[in-house]
Computed example of a mutant assay.
Amino acid sequence: MLKNDHWINEQAALGMLQPFQSGLIRHLDPENASTPVLSYGCSSYGYDLRLSPKEFLIFRHVPGTIMNPKRFNPANLEPTSLHEDEDGCYFILPSHSYGLGVALEKIKLPSYITAICLGKSTYARLGIIVNTTPAEASWEGHLTLEFSNSSGADCRIYANEGICQLLFFEGDPCDITYANRTGKYQHQSEQVTLAKV
């Protein structure tokens, strides 16, 4: 069953999401519509996570290099600078490239909930694809988020604003949670976690 805003607010009070915004924020100043943000916070059936400003990495094109998930080479990634202007703080994801960021909110899922992370339509309309990422029962930490820029133009990716939506699904109790099996991506910090085997 997909969980609603009432349940999300109840669980957030118990520590499921920190920091937590109980309503959907669309303007930094509600009195001034000229300061829009990419929405974040609790919606009807989900929670829009924000992108942390702490780190954003992009894959470099290294001719002749073949990526290997069993022997991930961090030298294939390079940090990108955080920029700021009147529209906010942002990273630049170059055209036809791939980047890694991290959610600002820390998540601590109950043992009967799995969350799915989906992209926001505002970014999708620009050609930015957020990889569908699951967080299994009892997973805890800051999600590392994966972005693909499928367009022919560079794109701003705003920090401290909505970047993706979490949907929470309740299932029958499982025998072994992600925490029980000491999953390799458990307890991620607010920094990008690289591929592990």
Rank of each mutant, 00 (worst) to 15 (best):
L17G: 02
L17I: 15
L17M: 02
Q18W: 06
Q18C: 08
P19V: 14
P19H: 08
P19D: 03
P19C: 03
F20N: 13
F20K: 10
F20R: 12
F20V: 10
F20L: 12
Q21T: 15
S22R: 14
S22E: 14
S22L: 13
G23L: 15
G23C: 15
G23S: 15
L24P: 10
L24G: 10
L24R: 14
L24A: 14
I25V: 15
I25K: 06
I25A: 09
R26N: 14
R26M: 15
R26Y: 12
H27L: 13
H27A: 08
H27G: 03
H27W: 14
L28F: 06
L28K: 11
L28E: 13
L28G: 11
D29E: 06
D29I: 10
D29Q: 11
D29Y: 08
D29V: 07
D29S: 08
P30E: 12
P30R: 07
P30L: 12
P30C: 09
P30F: 06
P30I: 07
P30Q: 09
E31Y: 12
E31H: 09
E31A: 14
E31D: 13
E31R: 08
N32Y: 02
N32C: 04
N32E: 02
N32Q: 11
N32V: 03
N32P: 00
A33W: 00
A33D: 05
A33T: 08
A33H: 06
A33N: 03
A33R: 11
S34A: 10
S34E: 10
S34C: 03
S34N: 09
S34I: 00
T35M: 10
P36C: 06
P36S: 11
P36W: 08
P36F: 06
P36Q: 09
L38A: 06
L38E: 11
S39L: 07
S39K: 10
S39W: 04
Y40E: 04
Y40K: 07
Y40D: 08
Y40M: 05
Y40Q: 07
G41A: 01
G41D: 03
G41Y: 03
C42R: 09
C42T: 05
C42E: 04
S43A: 11
S43Q: 10
S43N: 14
S43P: 01
S44R: 04
S44C: 00
S44Q: 06
Y45R: 05
Y45I: 07
Y45C: 02
Y45V: 06
Y45Q: 04
Y45K: 04
G46E: 02
G46Y: 03
G46S: 04
G46M: 00
Y47I: 03
Y47E: 05
Y47P: 10
D48H: 05
D48Y: 02
D48R: 09
D48M: 02
D48C: 05
L49H: 00
L49Q: 00
L49I: 02
L49M: 02
R50V: 00
R50D: 00
L51H: 00
L51Q: 00
L51C: 00
L51A: 01
S52R: 03
S52N: 01
P53L: 01
K54T: 12
K54N: 13
K54M: 09
E55N: 09
E55M: 12
F56R: 05
F56I: 04
F56W: 01
F56E: 00
F56V: 03
L57G: 01
L57C: 00
I58E: 06
I58V: 13
I58G: 05
I58Q: 07
I58C: 05
